[in-house]
Design a protein around this nucleic acid. Structure first.
Lengths: 204, 204
DNA sequence: GTGACATCGAACCGATCGGTTCCATCTAAG
DNA sequence: CTTAGATGGAACCGATCGGTTCGATGTCAC
């Protein structure tokens, strides 16, 4: 029961408590797998309070997803930044961070992509698209600093590895998909940074 | 109304008609986005008929997903086989086929992976895992024939590209994610087939 | 014609859904 | 002490859900 009776604490704190509690349950059980009533019971609040803060279940979901996109983006960006100046090291750091995430007990894929998959028309789709765009910016930045011939193209390919690793880690239960993605990403980085043409060998 | 009154045609045909109709609607609207009643109405059958054939909504979904996994696997395997003997050409053919799929009007991601994302505990999860395993076999076969040093590892990385491309094509609305995946796959194939160590350049 | 079978259409079941409303209660500010 | 605001608890709403049952209707094999 995170929220006492009356207005013991300011509404902002109530709001934050609802978000923190609902995020976990919705992620674990799916957007349609849990009702408003259970969400409120688990958070120790009444339905009226929830609706005063978020207006609707969709409003609650939107708020949760936007906050999560911000948090995840900051987390990965910082992981890259803390790896130093070498673009390859930054790239490796991103996938190493992902691997930690994939290995956590409750891992169940990307909450934002999952939400968009479940509610395809709803605002979740737009949030997911923006979220992937942020990933793209991160990877394109690394590709640019690595001196890739076509940083945008390399960024897009790195994004494929991230999303693919997330899906495989989830549905195959293989957190080490992040390791495969990391190795593949470094290989792509090497071949893209090499030179204009994409053949880098001395084959017949 | 695909199914007339009485038993005009044999039950097998009725069953097939239900499957064909329900598959499209469930894919488009999501497993929880459409009820049994609407499914029956759209297929022009009664609820009793549906339940006699499939037992439950989950039974219907399971049947649909398993059939779809078979069909998709055969489709991609044939695309690879028809590309000739060159492993690189086979790989390119797979992603070219995917691109056609991504570009279709109703594309909404992989139905099987989507189903597993929506019903995480249900049999959909097992079907999705098996489905990814089939992809893995396809890619590992290509990697083996290409003479990769570690065909299993290369197969896993190619799978990441396929799944990543599917997610990105869906949520970013970019069918050309398949082209990025194709180029990345060919680059990975080249660098993996080159030689034991994974550094194939002449950097400092 | 007769019986076995498949089907439709509709009513029905209990449960749950998202959302609304009302009121007693508690706290903090004046 | 009083008042304003935030809250919990519970009742309530109409709709929909997955699933069951039953009788009428139709076709087919014999």
């Amino acid at each position: 029961m995170p929220v006492p009776k009356g207005s013991t604490l300011d509404p902002d704190r109530t709001r934050a408590a609802i978000l923190r509690c609902a995020e976990g349950i919705l992620y674990e059980r799916g957007l349609d797998g849990v009702g408003i009533a259970e969400l409120c019971a688990e958070a120790g609040i009444s339905k009226e309070t929830l609706y005063r803060h978020f207006g609707s279940k969709d409003g609650l979901i939107r708020t949760i997803l936007e906050a999560r996109s911000d948090r995840v983006t900051r987390w990965l960006t910082r992981a890259a930044a803390e790896a130093g100046d070498d673009p390859a090291a930054q790239l490796a750091a991103v996938f190493d961070a992902l691997r930690d995430w994939f290995g956590e007990p409750g891992f169940r894929g990307c909450a934002i992509v999952n939400a968009a998959t479940q509610h395809h028309r709803a605002p979740a789709s737009a949030i997911a698209a923006a979220h992937l765009g942020r990933y793209l910016d991160l990877f394109t930045g690394i590709a640019t600093r690595a001196g890739a011939e076509d940083p945008a193209a390399l960024g897009r390919r790195l994004l494929l590895l991230l999303e693919g690793a997330t899906v495989v880690a989830d549905h195959l239960g293989r957190p080490d998909a992040a390791d495969d993605a990391r190795d593949a990403a470094l290989a792509l980085l090497r071949s893209a940074a090499r030179r204009p043409a994409d053949n880098q060998g001395m084959s017949p």
